[in-house]
Each structure stands twice: as structure tokens, then as C-alpha cells.
Design a protein around this nucleic acid. Structure first.
Length: 657
RNA sequence: GGGGGCGUAGCUCAGUUGGAUAGAGCAUCAGCCUUCUAAGCUGAGGGUCGCAGGUUCGAUCCCUGCCGCCCCUACCA
């Protein structure tokens, strides 16, 4: 509803500009700094003042003279030295909002692909991976809430160095047979993904102490590539088992995928070979005959570097170029990524085969790529826009991928490729101490410590979730000692997941998170549980009313725009209703700015406004019927909007708290 | 060396594309539970928006130069 009014006002001003000043331009709206100024502010007069060389106030006056008032708008006012402020007709606005007159945007035809998570399948997931997955999943939820068609992909690098290292660890370091590893996967303790976590740290340390053992890695990689060895089988069962563990971990946070494209199929189905031919044909890459990259196929730096920083130093020729095919003929990760990105846009002229993978409890099916026909699957890929959720360190590689598309002439697709980047999650020194992680003297001096899979340094996702559940459970048990055990566990689990998701979302993407256990375990202030608690409170009011009176009143019969206008004369009530009505508008803006954090912030603000209301305006004790019914209706509406926002954030409302 | 990011309250962070009196949470201190459960509410203190210039009616925001921190700049991913 708020979105519609924004659009209507913007349109009205645009028309006014055209007819009065003969200007054709979009009019942006903003929120007044103070709520007493009204509901919307239009600063357009300031922008025009310079061009027209006239005082802004005069322009503002001219613009609102004879301006038709869109439905729901009470008046326009001029404030300060040129602001146009708008006030809504509170009764009319509340009446249409509360009756639920909302229009849903139509489902878009174009498909958007969001690729996220993308964890190397060689060890348990850690908190850094959680940030990626939560960001990606929330962005997907934002898009879907606004009726975009979205496909969620989780790329599995099952033939890379990291998997090879763990395979080498099993084979060379541990002398484990395929059956041994299968037994390890079956055994409950230690969990296989945790076992690999330690093994990966061990083999990495071993490489460091015995550099000659790096030959194991090469041998394993070679075996995986040629496809003819027990090591290949080992690689597959390890990565399959780990992927399955990752999916379970993410599922605890409500994160699901549609399809898992695997690197093994990119290779076996000759995706890369096809892409390579294209790149050669169109001269996007060239064969280097001299210098340090001699014998490689490289992409010239000019393709992906900003034009202004052209090589002023002439000797640097080939210095910044990116190797796509190594001199030994193997392809780099970027090369495979170009092929994958081409497929995402349907530009490769090839497709994977698919088989059903993991099934979620709700029946949702994940499909996994395969190299031979298996079953009829939904169609994947061929999107109009692609978001790759990848940490900011890989910005350069992402630039190379996009440059690849552009060099092939796919400029539209290059422009539609978005690197949805985010900063790393580090550990606070205090948290390292709490977890018993020993730090080097160098690390001790830093404000935060980098998570490192190679060093086995980090907080495992499942450990963190377990710890959160434990903390929440203590609180739930002290508050609801009589509730059934299973239910208490369920509530604690929802609170834990809510706390974790909110924590990962409250920071904007390019802000580095120094993960602090104490902070993450807090359930007070700007946290997920705070938002959940507000929703629970709203639900309690509604439930209690129904317990006493059987059903909710027939609001539309007992109230009217006029009675609502009287009640919403109160500034606090009006601001609550107004804020609650902005849920969709906020999501639209957050999609535009690509910041899930904005939705999280809004959820908190709405919860905060409701908590204020909760304390200042007792609903059930209200004696005046008209007012009581209005408060009740408002409560129902805010509850609905809170749930709507929490759904976008992937946060559930517990039954009680 | 080159490219990118960051610097806002004691701490962690917002700040809607240049606008009205710079905001939250945590922490600290002082209040509020016989009520729709206090995981809450009310109030207080706390700021040279890194520094210095510039652009203009107006700058935390744009430009330039410094200072400090981080990341990238692999035939690793």
C-alpha cells in the first residue's frame, strides 16, 4: 500500500514537472527526518533550484499549485526553504491498510539465478560459510517475496585441490581403503565432516613440514582428472558425504537449494572444452609465447582492468594478464567459472544431466548434476540475471569472468552478472581464547583473527548452532518449566536459528565481522530473538482475546474510516501502523540496494515500535470498545507484517518465549 | 608499485544515491514486574563523523592531498 502511494505521488510530480516546467525526469521521495514533518518528503525543488536559478521555495509552491492529490493523500505542505512534505489521510489510509487491500506484483517471466554457499566439500562448514549462505538465502527470499522467479544454485567444487588434499590425507597419510572411509562415513562419532576438518588441518601441516609430500596432491589431482583410480572413487564418496552434511547444516537454518552443479560434470560433459573453443575463436584469449606465462592461454589485462590505468609502464606487457589454461594444459578455476557462467545464461549450447539428490522434510527436491541421462528434471540455467554470492577477496576473479563474457560479445549478460560480495568473518581474540584456540604472537596483536580451514582454525557451524540452542534452552526451561520437553526444544531451536540468522544479517555486506561468541549468544537488544519476542507478544494478545471471547471482532462492521481517524490521531499508534505498512516497500528498496541488512534493521525497528505500543497501550484492558477494537486490529496487522518480514529474513516465530 | 575497501559515541555498527536537531544496540548509571510473560519499557551521560584543503546556499556523504588499518595483485581456489 505504501509502495502504491509512493508510486502515485512520484507519478503525479513527474507529470507536474512536465506540464509546468517542461522537464522530463524521475522524482525521488525520501523519508522526512522527523515524523512530525509528515509521511513523505519530496526534495525535488532543491535539485531544480540550481538549474533554474530560482529559489527552491518558489519552485515548490509552483509545483504543488493545482497538483491533484493521489488517493490517500491529505495534503502537501512546504517546509523549511523548499521541502514539499506530504501528509496522508490517516483514516482512509488505515482503513485500506487494515482491510488488507494489497496488490501483489506479478510473477516475472525472467529467471534470476542466485548462486551461494559454494563450500569446498572437504570439511565441515564454519561461520564464514554461514554468512555466505544466510546472505544468499535471504536475498533469495527477498526476491521471491516480491514475485521474482529465482533459482538457487550451490556450486560443488568436487574435483578441486581441497578435496584432493583430504583424499590424499586418507590415502597416503592414513592408509585408508575405500571401505575404511565408508565405515568412517557410517559411524556417528566422530562425525565425518568433523573428522575431515581435522584431517585437512593435519595434511596441510604435513605438507608444510614435508614439502616433498606435495607430490601426493599432484598425484591425486591427476588421478581425479584421468578418472581411472581408486582415488577417484574416494574423491566422490568423500565429497558426496560432505555435501550431504553441508545441506543438513544449512537446513537447520532454513536454507535450501534447487540444484547443485558440480565441477566434475563441467569437466566430463566438456563444458570447459566448449567454452575454450569459443574463447579461442573470438580471440578473447591468446597463446603466450614469451615471458613468465610462456606456453599458457591468457586473457589480456586490458580486458578486465579499468581503462584509465592503462599500462603507462611499457615493460609491464603481459604482467597483469590472467592465465586461463596452464602450460601443462590444465584449466584454472577461472576458466571453469567462465564456462559455468556461460551455462547459467544459456549461452553454452549444452546442458547437464540431472538426478534427484537430497529431499527436504517439506518435500522440496534438490537436483544434482550428472554426466549421463537419469531422469526427467526441471529445466535449470538460462537466466536473465545472475547473482554470485562470493566473498570480496574474489572480486578480481569475478571481474575476469565477466570480462570473459564481454570478450565473447555477450555484453548484455556481462552487465547482468552481479558479484554479490561480502566481507569476511573473522574471530575476535576473546572468542579464540574462549574456544581454546592458541594464537601466534602475531595474531595476538591483531584486532581479529582469520578463520583458516588449513589450520583448522575456526568455529564450526553446527557447534555454534548447538551452543545457541543450549543457551536458549536454559532460558526456555526457566520460563516454561511445565511445557513438554520436545516443544521446549523446538522453541529453543527456533530462537537459536533466529539469533544466528539475524546476527549474520545485521551488518551490511562490506562490513567485516569480528565474530564474538558472547555477542552472538546474546538474545537482547538488536537481535533475532528480540524480533521474535515482539511477534510472540502480538500473538499472545490475539490468542488471549480469542480464549476470552471466542473469536476476533468483525472489525469492518464495528469500525469505519472515521473511527480509525479518531484513534490514529495518536502519534504513537499512527507511527506504528505506518511503519508496519512499509514492509514491502522496504524489501523493494533492499533489493535495489542489494542489502539484506536493511530488511533486518527494519524488522528490528518494527519490533521496537510494537514493544513500545505493548507497554503504553494495553489492548485487552481497554474499556472503550471502539478503541479496543482498533488496537486489536492494529495488533493483528502488525503481527502479520512482523511475520512477513521475519519470513523474508528466514526467522520463525516460536509458539511462546 | 598498481587496484579495491574501510576510518562515525568507551565497544560493535546504521546513516535511503548533497539537505531539516548525526542515530541504534552493547556496556555504564538511575527507575519500572499483582497487568496482554521484564528476552521488555522509561530516563541519563557519552561525538572535532581520521586530519587538512576544495567544490556550493548547504558536506559524515562529492573532489584533491596526507595519516592509519585491511584485502587483492598465483600456471591456489
Amino acid at each position: 500500500m505504501f509502495t502504491q502511494i509512493e508510486a502515485a505521488v512520484s507519478r503525479a510530480f513527474k507529470q507536474q514537472l512536465a506540464s509546468k516546467l517542461n522537464l522530463n525526469r524521475e522524482v525521488t521521495l525520501e523519508q522526512p527526518k522527523q515524523s512530525s514533518f509528515g509521511e513523505l518528503a519530496i526534495p525535488v525543488a532543491f535539485q531544480l533550484a540550481r538549474e533554474l536559478k530560482r529559489p527552491p521555495k518558489q519552485i515548490a509552491e509552483e509545483l504543488i499549485a493545482g497538483l491533484p492529490k493521489p488517493e490517500g493523500v491529505a495534503c502537501f505542505e512546504i517546509a523549511g526553504n523548499g521541502y514539499i512534505n506530504l501528509r496522508l489521510d490517516r483514516g482512509a489510509y488505515a482503513w485500506s491498510i487494515l482491510r488488507g487491500v494489497e496488490t501483489k506484483p506479478e510473477q516475472s517471466l525472467d529467471k534470476i539465478i542466485v548462486e551461494h554457499t559454494n563450500i569446498n566439500p572437504n570439511k565441515a562448514a564454519h561461520i564464514g560459510h554461514l554468512r555466505n549462505a544466510v546472505l544468499g538465502d535471504t536475498f533469495v527470499r527477498m526476491l521471491r517475496k516480491r514475485s521474482y522467479r529465482v533459482e538457487v544454485q550451490n556450486y560443488i567444487d568436487n574435483t578441486g585441490v581441497q578435496v584432493a588434499d583430504v583424499v590424499a590425507g586418507f590415502h597416503y597419510l592414513g592408509h585408508k581403503s575405500i571401505d575404511d572411509v565408508k565405515a568412517l562415513i557410517e559411524s556417528a562419532s566422530p562425525r565425518f565432516d568433523y573428522h575431515c576438518w581435522d584431517l585437512y588441518a593435519r595434511i596441510s601441516a604435513h605438507y608444510k613440514e614435508h614439502p616433498e609430500s606435495l607430490a601426493w596432491r599432484d598425484a591425486t589431482l591427476h588421478a581425479i582428472e584421468s578418472g581411472e583410480s581408486d582415488l577417484v572413487v574416494l574423491g566422490h564418496i568423500v565429497s558426496d558425504a560432505i555435501v550431504s552434511a553441508h545441506l543438513k547444516t544449512m537446513c537447520r537454518l532454513g536454507i535450501k537449494y534447487d540444484v547443485l552443479p558440480r565441477e566434475s560434470e563441467i569437466l566430463h560433459l566438456k563444458f570447459w572444452a566448449t567454452a575454450l573453443e569459443l574463447l579461442k575463436q573470438r580471440n578473447a584469449i591468446y597463446f603466450e609465447t614469451q615471458g613468465k606465462n610462456k606456453g599458457c592461454w591468457v586473457m589480456p589485462a586490458a580486458a578486465f582492468r579499468t581503462a584509465d590505468a592503462e599500462s603507462e609502464r611499457g615493460e609491464a606487457e603481459g604482467e597483469d594478464s590472467k592465465v586461463i589454461v596452464r602450460s601443462n594444459g590444465t584449466v584454472t578455476y577461472v576458466g571453469k567459472d567462465i564456462a559455468y557462467q556461460l551455462w547459467k545464461f544459456g549461452l553454452l549450447g549444452k546442458d547437464f544431466y540431472y538426478r534427484p539428490g537430497f529431499s527436504y522434510p517439506d518435500g522440496h527436491q534438490v537436483w544434482v548434476t550428472d554426466d549421463k541421462p537419469y531422469a526427467t528434471a526441471p529445466s535449470f540455467g538460462a537466466a536473465a540475471q545472475v547473482f554470485n554470492v562470493i566473498d570480496s577477496r574474489q572480486a578480481y576473479l569475478q571481474d575476469v569472468v565477466v570480462a570473459g563474457l564481454r570478450a565473447l560479445g555477450f555484453t548484455r549478460e556481462a552487465d547482468a552478472s552481479v558479484h554479490f560480495s561480502y566481507e569476511m568473518v573473522m574471530l575476535s581474540p576473546r572468542t579464540c581464547a574462549e574456544l581454546g584456540i592458541e594464537l601466534s604472537d602475531e595474531d595476538k596483536r591483531r584486532p581479529y583473527v582469520e578463520v583458516s580451514g588449513r589450520k583448522g582454525l575456526g568455529v564450526k557451524a553446527d557447534d555454534l548452532i548447538d551452543k545457541l540452542i543450549e543457551t536458549a534452552l536454559e532460558e526456555v526451561e526457566s520460563r516454561h518449566p511445565d511445557a513438554p520437553v520436545e516443544q521446549r526444544r523446538q522453541v529453543a531451536t527456533q530462537i537459536a536459528a533466529g539469533a544466528l540468522r539475524y546476527f549474520m544479517l545485521k551488518f551490511t555486506r562490506n562490513s567485516l565481522i569480528a565474530f564474538d561468541l558472547h555477542e552472538a549468544l546474546g538474545f537482547e537488544g538488536e537481535t533475532g530473538p528480540y524480533v521474535q519476542y515482539a511477534a510472540v507478544r502480538a500473538q499472545n494478545i490475539l490468542r488471549k482475546f480469542k480464549e476470552r471471547s471466542g473469536v476476533l471482532p468483525d472489525f469492518e462492521r464495528s469500525l469505519s474510516p472515521e473511527s480509525l481517524a479518531r484513534c490514529f490521531d495518536s502519534e504513537e499508534l499512527w507511527q506504528l501502523l505506518l511503519l508496519a505498512s512499509k514492509a514491502d516497500s522496504i524489501v523493494d528498496r533492499a533489493i535495489g540496494s542489494g542489502e539484506p541488512a536493511h530488511v533486518a534493521k527494519y524488522g528490528f525497528q518494527l519490533a521496537q515500535a510494537f514493544n513500545n505500543f505493548y507497554h503504553h497501550s494495553p489492548v485487552l484492558g481497554e474499556e472503550d470498545m471502539e478503541r479496543r477494537n482498533t488496537l486489536l486490529w492494529l495488533t493483528q496487522y502488525v503481527h502479520q507484517q512482523l511475520l512477513r518480514t521475519m519470513d523474508v529474513l528466514g526467522i520463525e516465530q516460536p509458539e511462546y518465549m
